[in-house]
Design a protein around this nucleic acid. Sequence first.
DNA 1: TTGTATGCGTTATCAC
DNA 2: GTGATAACGCATACAA
Lengths: 345, 345
Amino acid sequence: MDAQTPRGSASRPNVYDVARRAGVSIATVSRVHRGNGPVASETRARVQAAMDELGWSPSVPAQALAGDNHNAVALVFPELVGRYYSEVLRGFEAEAVRRQQAVLILAAHQRKDNDAMVRDLAGRVDGMVIMDRTIADGTAADVQRRGVPVLLLARPSIEDVPAVRVAGADPTRELTTHLLDHGPRRLVFVGDPELSPDVAERWRAFGDAHAVAGLARPTSPVATGGYQQHDGREVALAVLDTDGDARPDGLVCANDQLALGAYQAAARLGLSIPDDLAVTGWDDDPFAAHMDPPLTTVNQPMYDLGACAAELLFERLDGDVVGDVTLTASFVVRSSCGCVEGASR
Amino acid sequence: MDAQTPRGSASRPNVYDVARRAGVSIATVSRVHRGNGPVASETRARVQAAMDELGWSPSVPAQALAGDNHNAVALVFPELVGRYYSEVLRGFEAEAVRRQQAVLILAAHQRKDNDAMVRDLAGRVDGMVIMDRTIADGTAADVQRRGVPVLLLARPSIEDVPAVRVAGADPTRELTTHLLDHGPRRLVFVGDPELSPDVAERWRAFGDAHAVAGLARPTSPVATGGYQQHDGREVALAVLDTDGDARPDGLVCANDQLALGAYQAAARLGLSIPDDLAVTGWDDDPFAAHMDPPLTTVNQPMYDLGACAAELLFERLDGDVVGDVTLTASFVVRSSCGCVEGASR
DNA sequence: TTGTATGCGTTATCAC
DNA sequence: GTGATAACGCATACAA
């Protein structure tokens, strides 16, 4: 027999095996294992010994089937590129294992059959957190109607489905105003409001800041179609491919990866940051402080976002009714915006 | 009734409901659903309609229990900080969903009860990939003996448990020799061989390169106790806190995050990179090329590593016997090592 | 304190 | 082609 194809010395032991060995019924085995019902300490010891000797552990699917409960939760996100998602996931996972729950994940990518996969996922967990616009709007409510509590992350809540998010309007206004105050006048917003409610909110605040400054509201963002470095690079190359006064002198990027792409584009075009072009990001990646030049960005509590979502989800699973939660982000001035005075690391 | 506490219009429908509605037996329902056994096309249509109307989908735990198969796989890793892990996870997840398998994850952190959690995980999946030294050496073999095929990642294979990894010795020798050839003589290896077989391999190659250059083999690395930015910063601050000829003039870091920490330390101590201190990383984070100065590092195929591990795991689940796989990494010269000529972005 | 019996929702093996 | 029916492994109401 092939060594890599294990077969167990005789398939896994079950409750009956343990019960027989301990000379009790399966009900008693279940009781000592779950630590509920009453059981004589002497019996308990005998059963415990039998379990140990056989190396028994309960079948997860059987438990789930009988107990109608999975001891598992899921996180659904759009993609997995970049620190933002990995930090959210990290917070979510940490909180889940703290409660001894298994963690399932699903990256939606840009697949079209996401709703089907999400529904499948829903059959494997007790509750799930859904980020952004990863699935059709109705699906979340639908999943929940099927008995699986849902929590939304980085998007507004909908009927009966609470959400946790980071308020992006204030920092965006602060950032935009700061930029406008220090020179750049032809700012371009790099990011795709269609892809994420968070970014849509920032796009609006970006316009508001222009209005407050008495400037014309930019008519449309530069849609990137994604939030990765190469998206930022391509868009920046396209938008900067102009001479003279028409060329943008500031790129307000929806995340640090897009900003990184902008750095690439600027280097390729021989443009200096921040002299020829101001660039700002969002997320405050640890590397941002040591870029050339250090990147002005916005720090948002990504880990907390994931942990908080998990926490609220568990509260719901415990039967509590939870409300929306909004966390705050803070503007971090460095030097890529052209303002040297307040620069910090 | 509380709106957030869903209850389903009457709990989920099951095969019996579908069967009754279609006027057939549950066996037939199962047949049309699984698309195996013979069934009259007219009957099939009727059953299909009933399934659609009721919105039925099979209970995952029930399927797992009856079919002895989870349609799920797991990835266990030490932590989730940094691009390395998130990229490996990304590759793993992508390959898994491509095969319509659910993905479970577990970050071991530095918990002591990892083995227990891994065993629990093993009860939820058909196979699992384990990274590094996240669990006691015997546990992997043990899990596999219980019938769950295991694949090792970023560590050597053990009896009957194949592994996929990146060869780190060559790039390390290349990097170290490059450094030694261009000035720095008092190199320090920053990283913890105890924590990861990959790093242990590089530590050995680091010594080999010294020997080949006719230099004394460094006696011990600077153990970091972790691979995060702050680990690198603290260790660098400690090791650089010396004046004159005793101070190291080169830090060979086990990953880019540690190198980032070294940048922080250098800045704090007023040391210039690369003039006073050469620094190299590992992983080639996208930000590395745009750091100040651009970071010399080693590019390794992290996404592929995860995808490949998943692929091999699935081959094993399909009954194939698989061998070890070794991917290659490549040295990327930029300017943090003090060598300007070959610098690239 | 312990045991019996039934349900959980599938799949699959038989008969018919 | 189709339908009973027996697993699968555990939890629990109910008896004893």
